[in-house]
Amino acid sequence: MEGEGERERKRGGRVCCVCNEARASVKRPKTLQHMCRECFFHAFESEIHHLILNNSLFSPGERVAIGASGGKDSTVLAYVLSKLNRLHNYGLHLFLLSVDEGITGYRDDSLQTVHRNHLQYQLPLQVVSYKDLYGWTMDQIVDVIGFKNNCTFCGVFRRQALDRGAALLKVDKLVTGHNADDIAETVLLNLLRGDVARLSRCTSITTGEDGIYSPNAYRGFAREFIKDLERIRPRAILDIIKSGENFRISTTTKMPEQGTCQRCGYISSQKWCKACVLLDGLNRGLPKLGIGRSRGSVGSENGNGSKVEKSIQGKQCGTLDF
């Protein structure tokens, strides 16, 4: 038998470069520093605190909903925000807001995690379901549309479900958790697609935008590329995000105007928002309506999406993140 101390020493266990005491357990990609668990948590949380202050994200007394999927990003967000709120007296009223898509067997685990978050961090929880909001569960949507393309519905409906749930809770703000990999991936995808409007919006810390939907298979390549880059130089991910943040669009570029949906009042650059177009299609028995990159007006059923559709592979719906 050997003691834990003995074992650490054998490993050549390096010590944390911040406290110079505890054994380092992580090499932080952002700085390449060797840090122990406690120092890493402290650095991470205080960076977020400063980010909140520097961007004046909240004011005292505000009601704030935390988009909670049960995944790691939103769990970290719920933990950090409730901790900082207590520690620094932000004076925020925090809520957990969760979306139940109505996919048999799929959400059970993650909704359990959300319930655990609810108890652990003592935050009130509101669950909104697709069935209540749209009249359709994801299972019912898959029944009519099949396994291809259903991610379009799920993604668009989810983002709006959060906003509608937020309205239900009468909150002033809605926050969602994302990791650097995801943001960097989105920057790259917008760049590859030439979607200048989204490129400039996607890294902004506050938004008012409608749901981003992702031409699926493509995303996998971007992710793989990012993780390969990271292996060569871990900071590359943060640098891609920085590029996105610093992107400036020349003032002569025509940008799509952000207006509101004429049907439901949600933010939209088109006459109808994406969710309303999709919902309209479902209710009219034309579920493919609005899928693919039809930038045209509402009711453009002349099959202009069909060519694009073919290239869109059904994505394995593993992404629980908002």
């Binding site: 074992r7 490993r11 357990s25 992580v26 668990r37 992710r223 993780k227 390969d228 990271e230 292996r231």
Partner: peptide
């Protein structure tokens, strides 16, 4: 595969 974290006795 890149993106898989590996911990040996709780250490990266």
């Amino acid at each position: 595969r890149p993106g898989v974290l590996v911990l040996v006795n709780d250490c990266d």
